[in-house]
Design a protein around this nucleic acid. Structure first.
Lengths: 224, 224
DNA sequence: TAAATCATCCGGCACTTGACGAATCCCTAA
DNA sequence: TTAGGGATTCGTCAAGTGCCGGATGATTTA
């Protein structure tokens, strides 16, 4: 969801649009003066809006104001915006690629020397893979960025590194609308019961491997 | 996120608000005539809006139209709405309610005898609360059901019971698009570093209380 | 103490919205 | 083929937006 639309929606539906404009202006820490200057209009106009002198401002006015607030924030470094949609750092994403044909999951498991930990059938096919640093991902991805883990097909296998108990990655998957065809933990410390339970609920094989991320990246790429 | 705000936001920010109004009216399968009758205005008015004769309709007009569309849908059984906000509660959901006024977070924290665990400002307001069993929720909720946690306002405080390290609930929040105004752990075993870090990234106060879920339910209800 | 900054209030004016109703057109079901 | 639902276009006009500039006041900063 775009931040502009979110703010505009709140203003439009509010019982008192003016007060809501003010709320957001203050949230962005922009003075009436600064906002007015940015829009090349008189500060009194802003005050009139916020005080409610205009009961039903037009959508163009709202759009201008919202856009200006977001723009100003961005020029300052995007302090406020980032809370709603953070930038995409990609050192969390180690490798991602798609195949243009199906690959048997069982074959992949054999190649990476994996062990299945839960009671879910392995007779399925994948069309892509993602290798991701579990901790960095959870720390740096915003909601929408999780979708990027899925590339072109959600019919894929996701590898997680830096796994402690193995709960976090499965919870992320549980809560997210897109589900992978299989999950692999790369050299985890241990496997928690809840992780296995979640995998079974989602009907996703939970696999563990002793190989390192780099080797796996090479193996998976070789399957193209 | 309220569906009214979502639609209104889209209309307000769109390059062509009229077309966007039309898109939603058609999405709701309401004819111009029906909409006009519901609002006791002439159908030509709707057409004028949609055709773009009015380039910057006022927020009141938008609000009326959006509200009418949602109302009409609801009277028909809420076919369309349900696609955006669906889900069944279960025994995981202990209590949920909304206020029709802002309540200071600091006041709530005082009343539940809470301690803030992370470096995030407490100067904010809430409009509702949710008390949920952390383990049961993660085991029984499907993706869309997580939205149910947010009731009518995402500007709310969420209480989790059955917390071990406190990582899982924060991860669920991190991965989900809707974010609460504050999170409270009810009698957690302990608080993991990662949980605090995540709370700080999301700019969500992470609070701990020693009271039990039942007492909290009573206290929060008393604030109405 | 003077000078900015920040915000409010208000009279005024050009222009637009918000709404009407009548005319017109395209379908489709009786 | 005729009626009616659905949609569009347009002339019209009261009411309201959008914006100005100037006056006023409260705080902060020089």
């Amino acid at each position: 969801m775009d931040i502009h639309e979110k703010i505009a929606g709140e203003i439009t539906i509010a019982d008192n649009p003016g007060e809501t404009i003010r709320k957001w202006r203050e949230e962005f820490q922009v003075s009436q003066l600064e906002l007015a200057r940015y829009l090349s209009i008189s500060p009194s106009v802003i005050s009139d809006y916020e005080s409610g002198r205009r009961k039903s401002p037009g959508v163009l006015s709202i759009k201008k104001i919202v856009t200006a607030l977001v723009d100003i924030d961005q020029k300052r470094g995007g302090q406020v915006i980032r809370r709603y949609s953070s930038g995409m750092p990609s050192d969390a994403l180690i490798d991602i690629s798609d195949y243009n044909h199906d690959i048997s999951l069982e074959r992949v498991i054999r190649m990476i020397n994996g062990t299945n930990y839960c009671n879910v059938g392995l007779n399925r096919y994948i069309r892509g893979y993602t290798i991701v640093d579990g901790i960095k991902a959870i720390l740096s991805f915003s909601y929408s960025e999780y979708s990027k883990l899925y590339g072109w097909s959600s019919q894929r296998i996701i590898f997680f590194t830096e796994v402690k108990m193995g709960r976090s990655p499965m919870i992320a998957i549980r809560v997210h609308p897109l589900k992978p065809a299989a999950v692999v933990y790369i050299q985890p410390d241990r496997i928690d019961e809840l992780a296995i339970k979640l995998a079974e609920i989602e009907n996703i094989p939970l696999i563990v491997t002793d190989l390192d991320a780099f080797s796996i990246s090479r193996i998976m790429a070789s399957l193209k």
